[in-house]
């Protein structure tokens, strides 16, 4: 995804979410609002820092762009392992991480954690088709386990450190395989086990440079891309045969 398209989408989010950001008894920002995936990208860390106007706890969630994804279960058919059963979930965040100054279940009431979807257990995974609840639960657990193994979901929370009573900071480490798109960093101020203030900041993860250009071109002008790929191969083949001409 190009930066320009990401920005347009990110602006849309900011406009949509600005009413929440208006109760500003918490202010936070990121050390960088974009992660550039370049050739040789091995992951990135982003520092979140901010201040609150009085005592309280801070809980931060980072959500990746949402996408439909299908979980397949392998089964043995005639001695061969094949994808046999599947459940497709609608709008699943492709990345999810929590940071908190105190364990989230101590800082928040279960109701508040559920409402603000804090913690992987509070994420809603909705199957796109009618699936028995038993099976939906099995595939939801599998989805979480696979995503956790891939490093894009985390059950545990990162620690938010306070400097004095007002200032806080934490670091998010993103693995090399993070999906591209617009991420939302939601920062909540918590008092008496409930959210009293919030702020949302976008974080853009995009391919940049030659790779991004190639990826974009391959998707937006697929036919031309295919033709160029063929022409490059023909040229390379012709060049390769030159040294053998007199053989």
């Amino acid at each position: 995804m190009t930066i320009r398209r990401c920005l347009a989408r990110a602006l849309g989010f900011v406009v949509a979410l600005s009413p929440i950001a208006a109760q500003a008894d918490i202010v936070a920002d990121l050390s960088s609002h974009s992660i550039a995936i370049t050739t040789g990208f091995t992951g990135a860390s982003v520092v979140l820092f901010g201040a609150i106007d009085g005592p309280g706890d801070v809980v931060v969630i980072v959500r990746g762009p949402e996408r439909d994804l299908t979980v397949w279960r392998k089964g043995k058919i005639g001695g061969i392992w094949a994808n046999t059963e599947s459940v497709t979930f609608a709008s699943v965040p492709t990345y999810y991480a929590v940071a908190s100054s105190k364990p989230p279940d101590e800082a928040l009431s279960p109701a508040a954690a559920g409402f603000y979807r804090i913690g992987v257990a509070n994420l809603k995974f909705v199957p796109k088709s009618d699936v028995p609840p038993e099976q939906a639960r099995l595939f939801t657990d599998a989805l979480i386990a696979v995503q956790e193994k891939a490093g894009v979901f985390s059950q545990t929370h990162a620690k938010i450190a306070f400097l004095g009573e007002r200032l806080f900071r934490t670091t998010f480490n993103f693995p090399a395989n993070i999906p591209t798109g617009v991420y939302l960093v939601q920062v909540y101020l918590v008092r008496d086990k409930d959210v009293v203030g919030a702020q949302t900041t976008p974080l853009i993860v995009s391919q940049v440079g030659v790779d991004a250009a190639v990826f974009d071109f391959a998707h937006s002008r697929a036919l031309a891309y295919g033709a160029i790929a063929v022409v490059i191969a023909v040229m390379a083949g012709w060049l390769a045969s030159l040294p053998f001409r007199n053989a």
């Binding site: 439909d68 299908t70 392992w81 994808n83």
Partner: peptide
């Protein structure tokens, strides 16, 4: 026997 019984295919 596969290491992971479940796989995710993203659209």
């Amino acid at each position: 026997h596969p290491k992971d019984l479940f796989v995710i295919l993203m659209d």
